[in-house]
Amino acid sequence: MAKLGKINLVNEKESDGADVEVTSYPVEKGVPITDHVQRKPETTTVSGYLLGKTANSDYEYLKKQAYAGTLLTYTGRKVAKNVIITKIDRDTGDYTNGFAISIELQEIRIAKSPWVKKKVKTAGKKKKASKKKTKKSSKLYHKVKKGDTYWGCARKYGTTVNALRRLNPWPDRRIPIGVKMRIR
């Protein structure tokens, strides 16, 4: 008994292979020089049977997974993780409750990036600002210096110009220097 994804199948034969690609360059005299060997993905071939009432739906499921390129895990005499179905054949010969099946699987190697997303610490600042906004009973004042305006203080303390106008008696262009301007 073997399992491919969520499908159980009766495996009769299992074979696997490992290939490499070798590059060769001709030289003037003698045998070509080989300077590179590249590993190819491992392959597994499974021959067996899909049996029972669900044999046709299991076959359709496996075809769908092959067309979608879904990563599967094969567990039989050997275990192959992160494989895709590259070929699927069935023989509906003299079988009463199912059919013979042959499946070729190929390993998919997933690259892991060394890149890590940097965490931004602005979320912490927003939480502190929201705590200040929830405390409506606490009053906050700013001592006015030369050049201070409602607009500048609104940006500095995260409020609006209209809120500052409501809390303070001075007109926009005549805020006295040295007074305490109410912010909240």
Rank of each mutant, 00 (worst) to 15 (best):
K78H: 11
K64G: 11
A111G: 12
K81F: 06
I85Q: 02
T96D: 06
A123G: 08
K139S: 12
L62W: 02
I110F: 01
S102I: 11
K127L: 08
K119C: 14
S138Y: 10
K117E: 13
G124H: 02
I110C: 03
T92F: 15
T122A: 12
I110G: 03
S130Y: 09
Y74F: 03
V79Q: 07
I108K: 07
T75Y: 05
I108T: 11
K131T: 15
Y74Q: 01
L72S: 09
R109T: 15
I103V: 12
L71H: 02
Y95Q: 15
V116M: 02
A129E: 01
T122D: 13
I84M: 00
L72Q: 07
V79N: 08
L72A: 07
R90W: 09
Y95C: 15
K112F: 12
I110N: 05
V79R: 07
G93N: 12
K126M: 05
S137C: 06
G69K: 02
D91C: 03
A123P: 01
K139D: 14
K117G: 11
K133L: 07
Y74A: 03
Q106K: 05
K139W: 09
K128W: 05
Y67I: 14
V79E: 11
V116Q: 02
D91H: 03
Q106G: 06
L140S: 10
K121P: 10
K125M: 10
S102E: 13
K112Y: 12
T70S: 09
K127C: 04
T134E: 13
K81T: 14
V116K: 04
S138V: 14
V120C: 09
A123S: 05
V79A: 08
Q65A: 13
S130V: 10
I101G: 04
L62N: 00
K112D: 14
R77L: 14
T96G: 04
S130I: 12
A129N: 00
A100I: 11
K128Q: 09
K112M: 13
K127F: 05
K136Q: 11
I103L: 08
K133Q: 09
G98V: 00
Y74H: 00
E104N: 06
L72K: 08
I101A: 03
S137V: 12
K125P: 04
Y61F: 12
L62D: 03
Q106H: 03
A123I: 07
E60V: 15
T134G: 07
K143I: 12
E104D: 10
G69P: 01
K143T: 14
N97C: 07
R90K: 12
L72H: 09
N97Q: 13
I88K: 03
D89I: 04
V79G: 04
A111M: 10
T96N: 06
K121F: 11
A123C: 02
D94C: 04
N97K: 12
Y141S: 06
A68H: 02
Y74S: 01
N97V: 13
G76Y: 03
T92E: 15
V120P: 04
I84E: 01
V144C: 09
V144H: 07
E60T: 15
F99C: 00
D91R: 06
T134S: 10
K81Y: 08
L62K: 01
